[in-house]
């Protein structure tokens, strides 16, 4: 059952990778990376249950946070071609 789920997630990962490769627009790529990263989280969760060790499920939460923050960073970059005009928000260390 978990193996079938893992296979489905892998197929979806391949599709997202194809979209990120081919583009053509910036938004295709952002969405492809975002969904690839969501699929990564799913695959880690499924792998935990597949090998009967779901202890590493917590990692998925952290990955979801990283995914969220990097998507925000990328969209912010696209909006201003840089990290924003306000001096407080533009430090990359903050992200």
């Amino acid at each position: 059952m978990f193996a079938a789920a893992a296979a489905g997630v892998l197929v979806a990962m391949a599709l997202a990778l194809t979209r990120a490769c081919l583009g053509p627009s910036v938004f295709d790529r952002i969405l492809a990376v975002n969904s690839f990263s969501t699929l990564t989280i799913l695959l880690i969760a499924i792998h935990g249950f597949l090998t009967e060790r779901p202890e590493f499920l917590d990692i998925c939460l952290v990955y979801a946070l990283i995914n969220f923050i990097s998507t925000i960073a990328v969209t912010k970059y696209i909006e201003n071609r840089g990290f924003g005009p306000a001096p407080k928000e533009e430090e990359p260390g903050e992200v």
Binding site: I66, Y77, F83
Partner: peptide, 22 residues
């Protein structure tokens, strides 16, 4: 290692490279 890879590779270095791309 996976933890480091996700936070540094996918998180911080993407942001740093975008800042450089600007």
């Amino acid at each position: 290692v996976s933890f480091t890879e996700a936070s540094v590779g996918a998180g911080i270095s993407t942001v740093l490279m975008l800042a450089t791309l600007a």
